[in-house]
Design a protein around this nucleic acid. Sequence first.
RNA 1: GUGAUCAUAGCUCAGUUGGUUAGAGCAUCAGAUUGUGGUUCUGAGGGUCGUGGGUUCGAGCCCCAUUGGUCACCCCA
Length: 462
Amino acid sequence: MSKPGLPQGTRDFGPDTVRKRNFIFNTIRSIFELYGFQPLETPAMENLETLMGKYGEEGDKLIFKILNNGLNDPKNIEKAKAGFENVLAGRNDKSITERALKYDLTIPFARYVAMNHGQLTYPFKRYQIQPVWRADRPQRGRYREFYQCDADVVGSTALLNEVELLTIYSQVFQKLGIDVDIRINSRKVLSGLAEAIEETGRMMDITIAIDKVDKIGVDGVKEELRTRGLNDNKIDQLNGLIFFREENRNASNLSKFEFIKKSALYNKSATLQEGVKDIEYIITQCEASGINNIRIDLTIARGLNYYTGAIVEVTAKGVTMSSIGGGGRYDDLTGLFGVPNVPGVGISFGVDRIYDVMEELKLFPKDVQVGTRVLFFNLGSPESLAAYSCMQDLRKNNIACELFHENSKFDKQFKYAEKKNIPYVIIIGSKELAEKTAVIKDTRTGEQITLPIAQVGSFSFL
RNA sequence: GUGAUCAUAGCUCAGUUGGUUAGAGCAUCAGAUUGUGGUUCUGAGGGUCGUGGGUUCGAGCCCCAUUGGUCACCCCA
């Protein structure tokens, strides 16, 4: 038997980590609930065909496929061999695999909406907190199993939904203490730009290229556009807007809008105008309610295929970590599953990256580590029986406590309390037992008081 | 999927051009100290050097493969 291990890109979470993660989950969940979203859960696996083709070419490659059972059954072997040839040719084959681990929460949600659209009350607002899996090569901030926390609204085209979702972003990150940039763009703007330079078919090429401006700079983007088949004339037309980002990074949103509207391309595409107006509305509304960390950014693209309207991406300031949240509007996601005309918009929180950011910036409050509030010392048989009954009284009052498992030295029992970050110890020894008292000690301050045992239950362990 | 880099005690790491029984700090356990901890002192346990091959008289060190971590690309939460 060799040493046990974990599959690449997966992790165990110890007690401390789980508590910190729960702090994030609880924060997000409470805000989702506050805004009227309802919980939903879907299976870890979906039928492969539900997922395929929804995330772009790259996305399809990263879907974890599940091998069918019973391939070695004599009656399946011939079919499996033929199917495997198909797989080797780079295609999927139902005789080999027909299920896969879910890749995100949005597509399974769309599948759910399509299956239940008759029963749902629209607009349907749901939130979902579950793991997803991607067969990516792991690196910083990238895992093969990670949690997403999504909130989506389907059945409404109102931009008010976008405003509300952005408000949720703002509020959650404020509660977590993370200073963030929320960048917004619209697929309409991107496709409008492609339309304006008469390259409608190259919209993805254009967006992928300009999305890299942070990394490779303006000249790099131009080169990338060139290799993706745009001629210099068209690149120059886009150039103004690419430079727009570089040179006016910190300009106000208002001046950015003016800049875009002045652009020669603006009048060439109704889609572009529509996109700009959408964003203008969203930002104006957000700013009106005091949210001022949303910036228009023409270079965010978002890789997922299904977005059609506003798109948004959240990054943390002060750390080198890619986006910790993202989302956008999709006009017809359920159409892929046979139910047309159900528009939606949603956001996602990447809990694992949020965790990494909070760890790096030391943003977790100290008290998330407190589980047990009171440790009863074990000082012998009759003493521990008295302690046990006192402890049960506290537990009835909802105070988490435990009795040290054996009669060990004081030193050892104190160290246990210290390690587990337990704020109070209660000492009932032979002297206290005789006097029917207990010593309550605050391990943080070292202060201690002696109380009659009967009064311990009414002590406030803060 | 492509490329780079790393892997030595529970943790963080030393380990010289390949040379005898592989070290330190922290942690753990025991004792100095049998009712008030986090200090100090003394001692102890713990590693077939990620795994599998190879070169060599001899490998923690060199070579190949493999697994895992990290980083970049691709892409993304």
